[in-house]
Design a protein around this nucleic acid. Sequence first.
DNA 1: AAGTTGTACAACCGCCGGATA
DNA 2: TTATCCGGCGGTTGTACAACT
Length: 329
Amino acid sequence: MGRIPCCEKDNVKRGQWTPEEDNKLSSYIAQHGTRNWRLIPKNSGFCLQRCGKSCRLRWTNYLRPDLKHGQFSDAEEHTIVKLHSVVGNRWSLIAAQLPGRTDNDVKNHWNTKLKRKLSGMGIDPVTHKPFSHLMAEIATTLATPQVANLAEAALGCFKDEMLHLLTKKRIDFQLLQCNTNGVQGNTSSPYIATKHDDNDDTIERIKLGFSRAMQEPGILPPNKTWDSTGATSANFAGTCAYFPSSVNAFLCGPSSFGNEVALSPWSQSMCTGSTCTAGDQQGRLHEKLDDENGEESQGGKEIRNGSSLFNTDCVLWDLPSDDLMNSIV
DNA sequence: AAGTTGTACAACCGCCGGATA
DNA sequence: TTATCCGGCGGTTGTACAACT
């Protein structure tokens, strides 16, 4: 029963393709097409010691003559972000809307650049919503004791990033700001003064502030439904008041949502490693909550099947392209 | 100059649904 | 009918190179 294997698994070459191998593969496909990948390495005269699967990947991601190999244009990036807000990580669907780009190209570009850009703007790259919006949404669904746990868990996620920021050169910028114009507060601020010697204490202060903010009834009404259409920084102003400005830049995001995205040196830098991971976790939680509420997300069945996928007027992510395309780093 | 860290991207891995012997 | 393979997909890893310390 079944089929014969596509190749001898222990007799195939792996790793980088050589120009000679590329030439062999291209020549074969030029003559015979791409009908049956498993036959390509076997066919006489080509002697490609590659798995058929590897041949297919090499062709579709690199050798295909209709591929673009240059940098992504602003328009392409904007398209990727918009489509990602609708269909999520369905790279093949997104790539299908970008002639000459492969799903691998799109995926790599998203992971190395676009995701960071969004995070740097205070937007969760998974849900395409402001981080602060997500935090508030999650908090409003929980009872007060759970909020304390949430604060603990969230700060656990953020701790690495916080430590990084509080101990690296970016603190110098903050100190410089304080010394030169005094806008950020006086230099005796306990948050600013803890440059190297008091990281744990700083984290504890942040955690305490976060817990207090989340449990403050006036700030986050327990049963209040977040208005996604009218959310502004005012919704979170009370929460932000508990933190030093540098922490607010992260927890509370840009000065206002939507069209005005203020990119402080702090918010710009908060987009790597654990922060993005935290965002992912929040995004999944948000999706889970939506599912439990019986709401079919934009990535639902009709989207997944969808030939009419991109005819939708539902653009969840609607920042001006200039804001998006501004380089963060 | 050497070591470290960050970035970009090619390639691989494992899973899934459909096809096939 | 069923076991197995193929092709496609998304996630992850490996590596070369650049930038930084």
